[in-house]
Each structure stands twice: as C-alpha cells, then as structure tokens.
C-alpha cells in the first residue's frame, strides 16, 4: 500500500516506489473554495523541496503549491485544465497535480504522516 505524507502547507505526496504523486489535502481545497484554474509544471522540470511548482486558483485566491520533495517532474495531471473542479471533488484521487521522481528519499522523513497531519490540523 502506498504511503501518504503531508507538508505544513497542506500538500500531500503519495509515495509508490521512487515516484511521488503530489496534490493538496481535503482541508486545503476546502479553504480555497471552488478551484477554477491550476497551473502545472511541465514534465522534465527539476524541482527542489519547497520550490513553488504549481499554482492553484479559486475565484478570489491564488496559492503556490510547493514541492514536498526534490526531484524531476515526470507527469502533470492532464485532466485538471478542462476540469479544475476535480481538485474539490476528489483531491486525494483524481485531483492530483503532478508526479515527481523522488531524488532524495530522506526528505520524506521531514514530512508528516496521516496522524501527525490530523493533529496539526487540530492546532489551526
């Protein structure tokens, strides 16, 4: 089973082998409101942990999506351009943003697991 980890900026990364799938948490999509546009990185782009890698826009807000890990982008979700609402409807599933080949697995240790993220949300 894939492991899911979270950042304090509410990105998640689902880890399968050396590939991570990045998206935003249920909490984040709720805070943003109706997502109207997502700007995604091109495949092949090198990202560093903490870099702004994508942008998600709702009607009155625009947020940077920071890459939870360093690595190379291998794919961006082609469905989001035509159907940005997917981010609201299924953030953990079909609403993913991009996939990244994880360069340094040790970076994952700095992220929160499901339980830790839940506890973190309770503090907000």
């Amino acid at each position: 089973m894939a492991t899911v980890k979270y950042t304090k900026d509410h990105e998640y990364i689902r880890i399968e082998g050396d590939t991570g799938t990045v998206g935003i948490s249920h909490y984040a999509q709720e805070q943003l409101g109706d997502v109207v546009f997502v700007e995604l990185p091109a495949a092949g782009k090198a990202v560093k942990k903490g870099d702004s890698a994508a942008v998600v826009e709702s009607v009155k807000a625009a947020s940077d999506i920071y890459s939870p890990v360093s690595g190379e982008v291998t794919a961006a979700n082609p469905d989001l351009e035509g159907a940005p609402a997917t981010v609201n409807d299924d953030p953990a599933g079909k609403g993913w943003f991009f996939k990244v080949k994880i360069a340094n697995p040790a970076e994952l240790d700095e992220l929160m697991d499901e339980a830790a993220y839940k506890a973190f949300l309770d503090t907000l």
Binding site: V36, F37, E57, S58, V59, K60, A61, A62
Partner: peptide
Amino acid sequence: LSTREQHIRREK
C-alpha cells in the same frame, strides 16, 4: 480571472 491582478496576487 481576477487572480491575475494585484489585489490578489500582490507581487506576483
């Protein structure tokens, strides 16, 4: 499409 504008994006 006001997310392009200064009152939302500020320096970006």
